[in-house]
């Protein structure tokens, strides 16, 4: 871990961060919030510089993560800090949306485009909107003048110092664990063109897509398609870069070799992710569906209003409900 970040920098960051955050957490009439923000900012900046410096050394084996990463990270962290330090709940939710979008950016940098989009749509588009609805529904009653319009619930943080310390201690520990875990993990040395790594191999299971790409690249005719195998996939060798094509009417086969390989033929993130999801985790999809169903039902049941009826009204209601049903014939099962 020592090659990735110096421990002193980490501990200093923790101390500064804790100090900064404890100042920044909302208090009534506190003027120290900007100072806290500045402290926090400087702490994070220090760490960023440290990472960048380390990245330039040949020992770490490569360049740093790049400018866009630092941009998105700064936005994400800044927004998340505002989430927790802003006195008003609506602003917190909105800053959270900003955090999500910045996270999305980072996901894209890591090559997870689908998840990034899913995050924006589901999280920012659905969950956070629900949060905003509930915040609107359940506002605290304001209590007076401008600054005092906020209830204590929002305006005053409980135990900011202890909370910050606890959080940053944990932060330090987790960082050490995570960064230490990198060295012991196995991959990290696979370079482009390594023979053992074939991301395109999944295309063997996606013959229709291969057909489409080849047709668009005019490498096969309308009657030809990739030779299908027993399991429904295509005969597609990503390592040797050969595709076996069959003529649907004539029944002959031919091979498209490496020299004719189309440039666009590669498995994108979507392909791979979809295959992984459906091929390796089908049951989990089902279960996830059930969980969502239960959540929906549960939310509906929980948020019902209970109305107290008198007994006579209850009886009437029952009769009306049972009267709407066709009476079953006596005795027989319907």
């Amino acid at each position: 871990m020592e090659t990735l970040i110096s421990p002193i920098i980490l501990y200093t960051f923790c101390v500064l961060g804790a100090a900064g955050l404890s100042l920044a957490l909302p208090r009534r009439g506190s003027k120290l919030v900007p100072i806290g923000m500045i402290l926090l900012g400087s702490a994070f900046a220090m760490v960023a510089v440290s990472f960048a410096w380390r990245a330039s050394e040949p020992l770490t084996g490569g360049a740093g993560p790049g400018l866009f990463f630092y941009l998105f990270a700064a936005i994400a962290l800044g927004a998340s800090i505002r989430v927790i330090t802003h006195p008003r709940p609506v602003y917190s939710a909105l800053y959270f949306i900003m955090t999500i979008i910045a996270s999305c950016g980072m996901y894209v940098l890591l090559g997870a485009e689908f998840v990034a989009f899913a995050l924006v749509i589901i999280y920012a588009g659905a969950i956070l909107i629900t949060y905003l609805f509930v915040i609107m529904l359940a506002t605290q009653a304001p209590t007076g003048t401008e600054d005092d319009m906020l209830d204590d619930t929002d305006a005053v943080a409980r135990e900011p110092v202890v909370g910050s310390i606890v959080g940053f201690v944990l932060m330090g520990l987790i960082s050490i664990m995570l960064l230490g875990g990198i060295e012991t993990g196995k991959p990290g040395s696979i370079k482009p063109g390594d023979p053992g790594f074939q991301p395109d191999a999944v295309l063997a299971s996606l013959p229709v897509k291969v057909d489409k790409v080849l047709r668009r690249a005019n490498l096969i005719d309308a009657d030809e398609r990739v030779l299908r195998t027993e399991g429904g996939g295509g005969v597609f060798d990503a390592a040797a870069r050969t595709i076996t094509i069959e003529h649907t009417e004539l029944g002959t086969t031919r091979v498209i070799g490496a020299d004719n390989w189309p440039e666009e033929l590669s498995a994108g993130n979507l392909d791979r992710l979809g295959w992984n999801l459906l091929h390796d985790h089908p049951m989990t999809i089902e279960i996830a569906g059930i969980i969502l169903l239960m959540a929906m039902l549960g939310a509906t049941v929980l948020a019902r209003k209970h109305v107290e009826l008198e007994d006579s009204l209850k009886a009437e209601q029952a009769k009306r409900l049972s009267g709407a049903q066709p009476r079953p014939s006596g005795g027989g099962a319907s």
Partner: peptide, 22 residues
């Protein structure tokens, strides 16, 4: 198509830890 070097991965993890702590 290739694995991240440690120097690239580390900042992501740091950010993750920071967001978690926050």
């Amino acid at each position: 198509e290739y694995a991240l070097p440690a120097s690239v991965l580390a900042p992501y993890l740091f950010v993750s830890a920071a967001m978690f702590a926050i």
